[in-house]
């Protein structure tokens, strides 16, 4: 006798679900697809009326032009690239380290003040960097940090969502492992670096991705103003406002800019989902 496993959806329900997913998928994918093919269109095709969804003579010229347009600017393109890469690496590596260190006692130890800090961490998820940028601006100006790399990096470190994710994930590490280490005479620092960190690899990857994406797409930071401190997305929007003939260059630049985030996420998606399994707020 077969056990009844689960109710099934009606054929009609399946059809509705499929149509809904299809429509949603088109809504999400269409703009992305269109901007990718635009990057491969020669100028003659970019301004066809009506606009086309296919490229007849794909070209890499737009990508080459990104470099050419930039070689005419006062600040070399390498500078924007360096700025973006630098703050992304330092901001991400720094955050993953300090967030997992902070999450460890929050998840696995008991100490006075833990509950208060937990509530602060959860509450602070509400406040995105955009929302706290005015208070942060005033603080940076007090410390004379405006227009320095510090002003780009610290806001990336001073967020709480990563700490929250790491804390939730670490709470699933079995106490027995930590207890065993303690009995073997391992200190807290050894336990953390050699036992806890290797077991929370999916969460480390997830934090890396989330921070990478937000650092990489940091656009017009309000904390820097000189040309030499600007980042890649800012450079791109400066190209696009240059002239209408730059449409192809802009499209190519957009594609180049989104590639790293997409690749990093696609490779590590499994770890992200595993981490998010524990992301709920338990009441």
């Amino acid at each position: 006798m077969r056990k009844k496993k689960r109710t099934t959806r009606s054929g009609f329900g399946n059809a509705i679900a499929a149509i809904f997913l299809l429509l949603m998928g088109v809504f999400i994918a269409l703009p992305i697809y269109y901007s990718i093919i635009n990057a491969f269109k020669p100028t003659s095709e970019l301004f066809l009326f009506p606009p086309r969804f296919v490229v007849y003579e794909p070209t890499f010229q737009n990508f080459l032009n990104v470099v050419r347009v930039q070689s005419q600017s006062l600040v070399p393109v390498e500078r924007y690239l360096f700025n973006s890469v630098f703050i992304t690496i330092v901001g991400t590596a720094g955050y993953v380290l300090i967030a997992s260190m902070a999450a460890y006692p929050m998840a696995k130890r008991n100490f006075p003040g833990k509950k208060v800090i937990y509530y602060i961490v959860v509450f602070a998820i509400l406040f995105r960097p955009e929302v706290t940028s005015l208070p942060q601006y005033m603080m940076m100006s007090k410390f004379n940090m405006l227009d320095t790399y510090w002003a780009l990096i610290f806001p990336l470190l001073a967020t709480s969502f990563g700490v929250f994710l790491m804390m939730q994930f670490m709470s699933t590490v079995p106490d027995e492992i930590l207890e065993a280490a303690r009995i073997d005479g391992a200190g807290e620092k050894y336990t953390f670096f050699h036992i806890v960190l290797p077991t929370v690899k999916p969460a480390l990857l997830t934090l890396t991705i989330f921070n990478f994406v937000s650092a990489w797409s940091t656009a017009g930071s309000q904390f820097t103003y000189s040309e030499t401190m600007k980042l890649l997305p800012t450079m791109l929007s400066q190209i696009s406002t240059g002239s209408i003939m730059r449409a192809g260059v802009t499209a190519a630049g957009t594609v180049l800019l989104m590639l790293p985030s997409i690749i990093v996420f696609a490779v590590c998606q499994g770890s992200v989902i595993e981490t998010m399994t524990h992301s709920g707020i338990k009441s």
Binding site: L97, I98, A99, M101, A102, Y104, P105, M106, R109, F111, I117, I120, A124, F127, T132, P135, Q136, M138, M139, F154, P155, L157, A158, T159, S160, V163, E188, K189, F192
Partner: peptide
């Protein structure tokens, strides 16, 4: 001491650049 030490790096940056500014 160890617990606060682990927590301190993030907590100090968070306090100085998010809590206190607010």
């Amino acid at each position: 001491g160890n617990d606060y030490f682990f927590l301190s790096f993030w907590l100090i940056i968070f306090t100085v650049f998010t809590l206190v500014p607010i």
